[in-house]
């Protein structure tokens, strides 16, 4: 069997092998309660990666996701008091709005997405520092429990975050497989000039993809701030690398067009297992970033579709 036919199956095979290795090394790992907790913990990261999938699926990237989540933790903490549950709507609106801005700058002003999203990220950083006064803020505990307590509660052994993740994944999967938007995004990722030539308003759909990425990064930020019961301009730092890794090891290559949100779910689980395995195998926490950086390089090198790159810049 040649490598190209094996390639689409690599993510789940990798996941199974990793789980088997960690499972044999540590027998508490495979206990259902442990697995559920593990997956519950990684939900904010998963949601951010879910959003990033849309940006990467069209062959772009969203480097603002982390700054966006930071900003949203601050927004959620500040406006929870005055808006109550409506603050969730505000958060998603802010995220989708900034995402739209990234998309507009990328498509209409023709600025490459890694620069436009870096710039939007800069604006998000400024905003979060302005709003927070450069301090760490705390949510009113009673109010948090009243409004968002259900998010972090458990039904039996199942953390509710998993339900949120499942619902979002189902919606994203529906968008990807069953809507015009999903088809167009695939067309754009597979070959933008062809998509444009067949009469599709490519710019509009690309802007939508960045808006979705921003909106999901916002939801990730919201859940994260509810979990930590507060917000700060740098609280979600360290999310961007594992989120990109999750998308890529899941099998959505940087060149776009293949893979998708289901792949990202598998990719996120791979990230979670790698993280946990480092604990079990006694690798220092400080080594984590380096490990993920190396995994990222391998993942890109394996998944990228070089036929699409005429010159590699």
């Amino acid at each position: 069997m040649d490598f190209q036919r094996l390639k689409p199956h690599l993510p789940w095979i990798t996941l199974l092998i990793l789980v088997a290795i960690v499972g044999t090394a540590d027998d508490t790992f495979l206990k259902p309660a442990n697995l559920l907790n593990l997956m519950g913990d990684i939900v904010p990261l998963f949601i951010m990666a879910l959003g990033l999938t849309f940006a990467i699926y069209i062959g772009g990237i969203d480097l603002s996701a982390q700054s966006m989540a930071n900003l949203i933790t601050v927004v959620a903490t500040i406006y929870l008091g005055s808006l109550g549950g409506w603050v969730a709507l505000l958060c998603v609106a802010v995220g989708a709005g900034l995402g739209t801005l990234s998309g507009y700058i990328t498509t209409k002003l023709m600025v490459p997405s890694f620069i436009s999203t870096l710039a939007t990220g800069g604006i998000a950083i400024s905003l979060s520092q302005y709003l927070s006064g450069q301090r760490a803020l705390n949510m009113d505990a009673a109010q948090r429990d009243a409004v968002f307590g259900w998010m972090i509660a458990k039904t039996g052994p199942v953390p509710h975050e998993l339900f949120i993740a499942a619902v979002l994944l189902a919606i994203a999967l529906f968008v990807e497989r069953r809507t015009t938007l999903g088809r167009v995004l695939k067309a754009v990722g597979a070959g933008e000039p062809a998509a444009r030539a067949s009469g599709i308003d490519v710019a509009r759909y690309k802007i939508l993809a960045f808006a979705i990425s921003g909106g999901l990064a916002a939801i990730a930020g919201l859940i994260f701030s509810v979990k930590l019961s507060g917000g700060a301009p740098a609280i979600a730092n360290g999310f961007l690398l594992p989120a990109i890794v999750a998308v890529l090891v899941g099998g959505t290559p940087l060149t776009g067009g293949v893979g998708g949100v289901l792949n990202t779910a598998i990719g996120t689980m791979i990230v979670a297992v790698i993280r946990t395995s480092m604990l079990y195998f006694d690798i220092e926490a400080t080594a984590q970033q380096m490990v993920f950086g190396l995994v990222l390089i391998v993942a890109i090198a394996v998944t990228i579709d070089r036929a699409k790159l005429r010159t590699v810049k």
Partner: peptide, 21 residues
């Protein structure tokens, strides 16, 4: 043959990680 923005971003992560370690 990885586009430079991604290759260098990943190498930057590795570098920062190495310094932290």
């Amino acid at each position: 043959r990885i586009p430079s923005f991604m290759a260098s971003l990943a190498m930057g992560f590795v570098g920062t990680g190495l310094a932290v370690m």
